[in-house]
Computed example of a mutant assay.
Amino acid sequence: MPVNLFNDSALQLADAELDFKPHWLEPATADRWLALLLAQTPWQQPQVRLYGRQYPVPRLVAWYGDAEASYRYSGLIHRPLAWTPLLAEIRARLVATLGQPLNGVLLNYYRDGQDSMGWHSDDEAELGANPLVASLNLGATRRFDLRRKGQSRIEHSLALNHGSLLVMSGTTQHYWQHQVAKTRTLCAPRLNLTFRLIRSPA
């Protein structure tokens, strides 16, 4: 069943189901969560292999989830860290909002404008036929771009601000890619939590 949380904020893109709530989280809670997560998370910077060479990913990451929720992306298998009380609280609030289970979360820490996420789709086999990705944004506002698969032109951009929630579901990952590009604009740290449902663990 399609997720349709916010009828007044659904983005009208063909072959996509996107819902954006810019003020999903009240500012005081967003501030508290950001400070605690930045301080408590054991951040890592894994290496990925491109064209025969190893490169560090341009951001810091951590993967949490249920014990069986291993997740493969960028050629790496990520074994989940156990839920912290705070991440369990955030998951419970999202599950109540979505009405759907979530068993893993990828934390991405963008330290400044040079940290980024390249073009990709969240279409790994573990996420099932029509993946649900709930993206909670804390800290600095960063631009989130969308383009059709096979195309180079950006068709839509969103400003993902402090306390906002973006939900991608349905066939979105079949037809669309997204990125968070580098920027020369001075910007404060940003934390992005993408909650998922791992259907067939890696």
Score class of each variant (00 low, 15 high):
P2A: 12
V3R: 07
S9H: 14
Q12W: 00
A14F: 04
D15W: 02
H23D: 14
L25V: 09
A30S: 06
A30L: 02
A30D: 05
D31P: 02
L36T: 06
L38Q: 06
Q40M: 06
P42K: 03
P42N: 05
W43K: 08
W43N: 04
W43I: 04
L50G: 10
Y51W: 14
R53K: 15
P58H: 10
R59M: 04
R59N: 06
V61S: 11
A62F: 00
Y71P: 01
R72W: 07
R72L: 09
R79I: 07
P80A: 10
A82N: 12
T84V: 09
L86M: 10
E89G: 09
I90T: 00
R91K: 15
R91P: 01
A92T: 03
A92C: 05
R93A: 08
P101S: 11
V105F: 02
V105H: 02
V105T: 05
N108T: 01
R111T: 05
D115Y: 02
M117E: 01
W119L: 05
H120K: 07
S121F: 04
D122Y: 01
G128W: 01
N130H: 13
P131I: 09
V133M: 08
L136D: 01
L136Q: 00
L138S: 04
L138P: 00
A140T: 01
R143V: 15
F144P: 13
D145F: 06
R148Y: 00
Q151M: 12
Q151E: 13
S152I: 06
E155M: 13
H156Y: 15
S157G: 15
S157A: 15
S157D: 13
A159P: 13
G163S: 11
S164C: 10
S164H: 08
S169G: 14
S169C: 13
W176N: 07
H178K: 10
H178V: 10
Q179P: 03
A181W: 10
R184N: 14
T185G: 13
T185H: 14
L186N: 12
L186R: 14
P189K: 11
P189E: 10
N192S: 13
R196E: 03
A202L: 12
A202P: 13
